[in-house]
Write a protein that binds this DNA or RNA. Structure first.
Length: 789
DNA sequence: GCAAGGTC
């Protein structure tokens, strides 16, 4: 038998030729096992894994003392923390493990054919050890990197012994991440829990930190510090408007940035009412290369840019498209498209799938004639002499870049799915297109032979691939009609207007989800498949939040107190314990800072007070965990394990020792840490409640029970569902409540029910895609409702 | 239940 990695691999093994499955019917689960003939006299039963089937866990039953330094491998289907969402996955894992252990009893040989990398080695190792009962050392290893017939056949006829070093490196990675992550997360959570027990506040939160979470959060905190520390300094530009005959053009004084106002004003005065002379007109033609095919990171960045999809959302939508066989495997880092995927076939298939289908949203859109529909692009491409994609440097041992399969969808895709698929299809087309060109005109104008003004503009002169990618190409920075090329050298121009413009230096921009992801990629933390998830975790933990400035039309979301010179920030600089803020002071701060205009910098991700407090505490007590150096040194050591220069035990023991020390310094300073974090937590909560109050509450009408309060829409802290409750709940214990529909807009109608006097409410709903409105008495006990029955 | 890493 042999075990390959993900199920997606089987489709390529299929190309080796999957033999008739009937012979195994009734014996083997055909969903899981495949009978394969690799060469004439060898038969294999092939099975796929679903990523990891086993995971590290606090050893069952025996409660290990904290910190947990010796976790053990358990089947993932047994672990308790499976969310409802992944129940079917848990079930599948269980089935695969069961089937594998049954089959392993009668198998004669074992071949490990997962990805030939650390994680792949561990996946297969665990299956061979636990499901098949200690078969790793007797197993053989198939090593192939590209999934071609030839390579797979080759690897099966040249099987290798298992790579113990690779396996050890992989197991160590798991152990180190677990030991650091679980123990420090628990230490954090517990310290805050103890603190809140003291104060008798029952609210309980989960905190977490890890090798990737830590540095990622630190990136956001450091950037925020840079922004708030930024001192704006003024500088000046000089803008002149020149005229020749009836045409005008704008040009900036060069060098553009002028540090002193006096200098700027004197230049303006010198140039006023003078004539300008064109000293140079330069015309350049530059190519705009075709884009690379998408890997997952590039897709996430592009989908963020054009649709504002979060990276995590993009991955989830791409996954759906993949499971429906509309695109290839999305979790890839490759920017390459091997010819074996058959470009021509895919391209012509896309043309077939186009004909007015959902997949080609532009086919009949008359309002946007500039966007080409698939069939036009396809005939365009097929008419080309050759089809060669413009590939990027990045590669992936296991998968090619993301490409559309050209298959028709069997179901109606929702809006996001259609959008993402269209993006992938057009990107795929674009990589095969012709180079585009723009023309750049640069004009230099001199006044009194002394003052230089420059103007330049770019115009696309040959669209090439951009034609295919039109709805998504970023045209900003290009002009559609040029305003400069009419100029010739030695032309004399009149100055129509000249003025100095005051500007100020700007702090660096805040990260958004896309740029944070790029930062993680650059720093090489996390993996292609997990980065976006980790950003999501930081949001979930309330370490970071999206902040929009007043300039953004979108919601002015809750902005926690963060201002230079508040206790937290001065503390950050002085590296000492924060001063206690008196309630009145902090409320004032809150009000001031809740006004988004008061917060410096651009829209984007900001750390919450808790996120800042966490990074600051960790910097003091476990600096490793918020620095990329942990990943760096870990990777160096894993390499040494892999090359046999170091035993894994010494590396893992070192991690154990470090965590033991960290946990100790943590408990020695627990009071400080807990104090800082719970204070920050309270600040964040206060902010949230203030911003909740400032957010418009939806009033449904007067409370019929206490007659004094109003019924408003509230959100249950437990179920997160909304319900109607009385505003006097906290002040005079009015417990009037009523259930509300979970979706749709709600509005009080200022009408009351004739029968029970409860408010009548209007709501909107959708039924089979159609919107409708309805009105109802919200009292669940209304007599009218009973008589109807 | 907390990590990070696979994947349906």
């Amino acid at each position: 038998m042999s075990i390959v990695g993900p199920k997606s691999k089987l489709s390529s093994i299929n190309t080796v030729q999957v033999k008739n499955l009937s012979q195994s019917k009734g014996v083997l689960d055909n969903d899981i096992f495949f009978n394969v003939n690799v060469d004439s006299n060898q038969k294999y039963i092939i099975c796929y894994a679903l990523g990891h089937l086993y995971g590290l866990s606090d050893t069952k039953g025996s409660e290990q003392e904290f910190p947990i330094l010796y976790p053990s491998w358990q089947a993932l289907s047994w672990s308790r923390n499976q969310s409802i969402k992944s129940k079917s996955l848990t079930y599948k894992i269980k089935r695969i493990i069961d089937e594998l252990s049954k089959l392993s009893k009668v198998a004669t040989n074992f071949i490990h054919a997962c990805d030939y990398d650390q994680e792949g080695e561990v996946i297969g190792y665990n299956i061979l050890q636990y499901a098949c009962k200690n078969k790793y050392s007797v197993s053989k290893r198939a090593k192939f990197s590209s999934l071609t017939d030839e390579e797979i056949r080759n690897s099966f006829s040249n099987l290798l012994p298992p790579n113990h070093n690779l396996k050890d490196a992989g197991l160590s990675r798991h152990l180190i991440d677990y030991i650091y992550g679980i123990n420090l997360s628990r230490a954090l959570t517990n310290s805050v829990k103890r603190k809140s027990n003291e104060k008798n506040t029952k609210k309980f939160i989960t905190l977490s930190i890890g090798r990737v979470q830590g540095p990622t959060l630190a990136f956001v905190v450091e950037r925020e510090k840079e922004i708030l520390d930024h001192i704006s300094t003024p500088y000046w530009n000089i803008l002149a408007v020149f005229q020749k005959n009836d045409r005008t053009l704008k040009a900036y004084y060069f060098p553009q940035k002028i540090e002193s106002k006096d200098l700027a004003l004197s230049i303006v005065a010198e140039c006023k009412n003078q004539l300008g002379k064109v000293t140079d007109v330069l015309t350049n033609k530059t190519a705009i290369k075709q884009p690379y095919p998408f890997n997952i990171g590039d897709l996430q960045k592009e989908a963020y840019r054009v649709f504002k999809f979060s990276p995590n959302y993009t991955l989830s939508v791409a996954e759906k498209l993949y499971l429906d066989a509309l695109i290839s495997y999305p979790r890839t880092s490759s920017q390459k498209l091997p010819p074996s995927i058959n470009y021509t076939k895919i391209i012509s298939n896309i043309s077939k799938m186009a004909g007015g289908l959902k997949q080609d949203p532009y086919v009949e859109k008359t309002e946007n004639k500039n966007v080409l529909c698939y069939s036009v692009i396809v005939s365009n491409l097929l008419a080309q002499k050759s089809l060669i994609p413009n590939e990027g440097k990045q590669d992936d041992p296991a998968h090619p870049a993301i490409y559309p399969t050209g298959q028709k969808s069997k179901r109606v895709l929702d809006e996001s799915e259609s959008k993402l698929l269209d993006l992938i299809v057009r990107r795929f087309f674009a990589t095969f297109g012709k180079e585009a060109f723009y023309q750049q005109v640069s004009v230099t104008i001199a006044i009194k032979d002394k003052y230089i003004f420059k103007s330049e503009e770019k115009k696309i002169i040959s669209e090439g691939w951009i034609e295919f990618y039109r709805p998504y190409f970023d045209y900003s920075g290009y002009v559609t009609t040029d305003t400069l090329s009419f100029l010739k050298k030695d032309d004399i121009l009149k100055i129509v207007n000249i003025e100095s413009i005051e500007k100020t230096t700007q702090p660096p921009p805040r990260f958004n989800q896309s740029t944070l992801l790029q930062k993680m990629e650059r720093e090489k933390i996390g993996t292609k498949a997990t980065r976006s998830e980790i950003i999501n975790t930081l949001f979930k933990r309330n370490y970071i939040y999206n902040f929009s400035t007043a300039n953004d039309s979108k919601s002015n979301r809750y902005a926690p107190p963060l201002k230079k010179n508040t206790a937290t920030w001065s503390e950050m600089k002085a590296d000492k314990k924060p001063a206690i803020i008196t309630p009145s002071e902090s409320i004032q701060n809150v009000r001031l800072q809740n006004d988004p205009i008061r917060i410096k910098g651009s829209s984007g991700i900001r750390p919450t007070e808790m996120g800042i407090a966490l990074v600051e505490s960790m910097k003091k007590y476990v600096p490793n965990i918020v620095s990329t150096s942990l990943t760096r040194t870990m990777e160096e050591q894993l390499e040494q394990i892999e090359s046999g220069k170091k035993p894994s035990s010494s590396v893992v023991d070192q991690a154990r020792e470090q965590v033991r020390e960290a946990v100790k310094s943590f408990s020695d300073n627990e009071d400080h840490i807990a104090e800082e974090i719970s204070q920050s937590l309270q600040k964040d909560r206060r902010m949230e409640s203030i911003s909740n109050k400032s957010r418009t509450t939806v009033s449904l009408g007067a409370c019929p029970v206490c007659q004094k309060g109003k019924l408003i829409v509230k959100k249950s802290t437990k179920t997160r569902k909304r319900f109607a409750g009385c505003t006097n709940y906290s002040s005079s214990n009015c417990t009037a409540t009523a259930p509300l529909p979970s979706t749709g807009a709600l509005r009080g109608l200022k009408k009351i029910c004739n029968e029970c006097k409860w408010p009548i409410v209007a709501s909107t709903g959708t039924n089979q895609g159609k919107r409708y409105r309805w009105q109802f008495c919200i009292n669940p006990q209304c007599p009218l409702k009973k008589t109807k029955k």
